[in-house]
């Protein structure tokens, strides 16, 4: 397969990268670049933002992270080894809306510098081994198709084989409609592997980040032994617009945000990003000790 292209994209993309508006950029960005906080409109220097784990120092707004940033902020330096990076989605339904799905895949690869909406691998947090799955919203909204489901299933299987705890950072709009029923089946697949993980007594921690909705929430995202939510993250099953249309009423403020889920017993804690690594480390230490 002519799959060298992923690496080519990385190189090519780095050059044309800086115009991406959604994702404030990382290390290779000039010092004088700044972004506006989505919440308080404060202008923040990109390198300051990065140094602050991409949290607004004024209002604590948590910017969405790319999978690579998440790894950099979470895993011990140099410990993360990616697995299964050669899986690629196919347009088996020949699905076309405003663009053919095959074209969307190609565009998403360029936009995100990733081969799919989740990066999986193993690494260490404070010297404790984990398998990690990190979803990335910039690849088709983090939607779950066959490849996302397969990579997560294989991550879980790696955890089962090696008896290493699994952590998944969710960030996903839900099932990938362009894969039809097969995207729905990924919910069954990932949940079935998590049943095995559970049976084997291997811990599973979910970090729910903004946004986590639909089929992702209704499968592995809600099956953790411990659920950690980042502050202010949108987490839910149904889309707010769908609910509003159904009920013909405005939704209460804070609906489907992390703090709402904490109040309703769906997550164990809402954790500031500055505390996240330390919290994960403590959890891993609990399970190990």
């Amino acid at each position: 397969m002519a799959k060298l292209s992923i690496h080519e994209w990385f190189v090519r993309k780095k050059k044309e990268d800086n115009r991406n508006t959604q994702q404030p950029q990382r290390l290779d960005i000039p010092d004088n670049l700044w972004v506006k906080c989505h919440q308080c409109n404060q202008a923040i220097y990109v390198k300051d933002l990065d140094a602050n784990l991409k949290v607004c120092s004024k209002c604590d707004y948590h910017f969405r992270l790319s999978a690579r940033e998440r790894i950099r902020f979470t895993a011990d330096e140099g410990t993360f080894e990616e697995i299964n990076l050669n899986l690629k989605s196919t347009d088996f339904l020949e699905f076309s809306d405003s663009k053919p799905y095959s074209q969307r895949i190609e565009d998403a690869m360029i936009k995100s510098s990733l081969n799919e909406a989740v990066v999986t691998g193993k690494g260490k947090i404070n010297n404790l081994p984990v398998t990690m799955g990190i979803m990335d919203f910039s690849f088709m909204g983090g939607s779950m198709g066959s490849v996302v489901g397969e990579k997560i299933a294989r991550q879980i299987e790696l955890s089962i084989e090696s008896k290493i705890p699994a952590i998944i950072f969710t960030c996903s709009g839900g099932a990938r409609m362009q894969e039809g029923i097969m995207s729905l089946m990924q919910m069954a697949k990932t949940s079935a592997t998590l049943q095995r993980l559970r049976e084997q007594g291997v811990p599973f921690v979910v970090v729910l980040t903004d946004p986590t909705t639909g089929g992702t929430t209704a499968s592995f995202a809600m099956l953790g032994d411990v659920h950690i939510a980042e502050p202010g993250a949108l987490i839910g099953f149904a889309g707010a617009r769908v609910i509003e249309q159904n009920l013909r009423q405005k939704l209460p403020p804070g609906f489907q945000r992390s703090e709402f889920l904490l109040t309703h017993g769906m997550v164990d804690m809402v954790c500031h990003r500055k505390e996240l690594r330390n919290t994960l480390s403590k959890l891993l230490s609990f399970f190990a000790g």
């Binding site: 998590l194 049943q195 209704a218 499968s219 099953f237 609910i243 769906m266």
Partner: peptide
């Protein structure tokens, strides 16, 4: 489809479905 509503979200529609998927596997 599963009901999309405020109270369904409050009571964990996603968790209920997810748990069923896992348990059905066993």
């Amino acid at each position: 489809g599963a009901y999309a509503g405020i109270t369904a979200e409050e009571r964990g529609q996603a968790e209920a479905i997810a748990k069923n998927l896992r348990e059905m596997a066993a």
